[in-house]
Write a protein that binds this DNA or RNA. Structure first.
Lengths: 130, 130
DNA sequence: CTTGACCCTCCAGTTACTGGAAGCCCTATC
DNA sequence: GATAGGGCTTCCAGTAACTGGAGGGTCAAG
């Protein structure tokens, strides 16, 4: 399979696939013309990567998950640890964003949003502590 | 005021303050020895920037907010538009993260996390659509 | 034999900083 | 007067994970 087909099937842009090769996540073969030649195993890895990334795992997490996936003797505890850490990060980020959203939505509601210059949003940014 | 004092008062790292000057958000004076000399107005701008960034506004948003702040003839509608757009982005991001969190927390719960290799997390990443 | 769709590599840019090197400046102390 | 420290300066490079583009080879069809 050439990169175009793999891109279509995996949903990942060709650029991204080349990048994943660059950083050593996949190692497709090469045809005599220099074109990358993807095996089914490469395709599977890319699909795995696509799903891992969609869940917000970092590339380094993905690298580790991929290694565990390849390792038949893995302990599920190792996988779970990665996922759990990531989950906790996401929960922290959600909490942060919710706090921001609440502040912001209050400000947006109280701002008249007309032609006059008075604006509680600017007042907040100007005066109050973070 | 030298940069160290401003950093302490504003809570922003000196590096960040220099960066904000680089990209034209502030324009402190210079002493004869080349040191930056911050006026109160610079300090206020930095505080404003710190709070805006803490609310997740991008630097470009900050630049625009700062310009509106400076402009006595501004229309609050312009400020509100920026904040509202940002708020909507945040709401989208929260929704995305919650979806991820739900998936992930389910997976983490169902994974035994012991010494055995069987792992629903890997199974999910391997098999199912995004 | 040319056209168009692929493919290749390499370089630069993105966001918002952050770290580090090399080197002035200022004050205090010996 | 030499020196030690802390603070200040600039400039360069690196971060995460791509993305865009230039310049150029390859392949199948007409």
């Amino acid at each position: 399979m050439n990169i175009g087909e793999v891109a279509k099937k995996s949903g990942l842009p060709a650029k991204t696939i080349r990048y994943y090769e660059d950083i050593g996540l996949i190692t497709p073969l090469r045809d005599t013309n220099g074109y990358r030649s993807f095996r089914d195993s490469d395709m599977h890895k890319l699909a795995f990567l696509g799903r891992s990334r969609a869940l917000g795992f970092t590339i380094e997490d993905c690298r580790n998950l991929l290694a565990l996936w390849d390792d038949q003797d893995r302990a599920s505890a190792d996988v779970r640890a990665i996922a759990k850490e990531h989950l906790e990060q996401i929960e922290r980020k959600i909490a942060d964003l919710i706090a921001i959203r609440d502040t912001l939505s209050h400000l947006v509601q109280t701002c008249a949003g007309d032609g006059r210059p008075d604006c509680p949003i600017l007042a907040k940014l100007e005066k109050f502590p973070t």
